[in-house]
């Protein structure tokens, strides 16, 4: 049995993770690089259950940009899943996608955002969008369940159609931050 998680995940009723999965299928995404985040747990499960998707668990998010480049060299679309702290780990590696013009869509679940209780999440969470944009990544943000599919679709399309790193930030309000009474 799993104890209650400190990290926040969308409620079981939320279907936006399933909508993201459906979009990945529509776009024929074949490689999914990830460092887990509770906010992505449902989407990760869906991808793992799909025999047409190669799910690659990474030791650091930085590997994911390299993986995306290799996948595209070989003609496969990929997506990269991480939490906002992981964005700090990929900054220089984004130069690979920029210089080679590699589609590199990144779906980031936000921490250090609404109602954060962990001090370590705040500095990077606060800087996530600025860091990505400083590195030439096109960033969109979704804070409401009904905006997720459209926003993620834009991020996928911009990456695959215009050959660059792109990101959707999935706001912490979507994930229902845990405050433990604080």
């Amino acid at each position: 049995m799993q104890r209650e998680q400190l990290e926040s995940a969308p409620s079981a009723a939320a279907d936006w993770p399933d909508q993201i999965y459906d979009l990945l299928k529509q776009h024929n995404v074949r490689q999914v690089g990830l460092v887990p985040d509770a906010g992505h747990s449902r989407l990760i499960k869906r991808c793992l259950a799909d025999n047409d998707m190669k799910v690659v668990s990474l030791t650091t998010e930085e590997e994911g940009v390299g993986l995306a480049f290799g996948a595209w060299l070989g003609g496969e679309k990929s997506v990269l899943l991480m939490q906002s702290s992981g964005v700090g780990n990929i900054i220089n590696m984004l130069s690979v996608a920029i210089a080679h013009r590699t589609p590199c869509p990144i779906l980031v679940t936000m921490r250090g955002d609404f109602g954060e209780f962990n001090p370590f999440q705040v500095p990077m969470g606060n800087a996530t969008q600025a860091c990505l944009e400083a590195m030439g990544t096109l960033v969109k943000r979704a804070d409401k369940p009904e905006d997720v599919a459209e926003t993620v679709n834009a991020t996928l399309r911009l990456a695959y159609n215009t050959y660059r790193p792109t990101a959707t930030l999935l706001g912490q309000r979507l994930l229902g931050a845990k405050t433990f009474g604080r």
């Binding site: 490689q31 190669k54 390299g66 993986l67 290799g70 003609g75």
Partner: peptide, 10 residues
Amino acid sequence: VMGLGLALAQ
């Protein structure tokens, strides 16, 4: 890991 992405794709 670039080699990995390429090897998986091809």
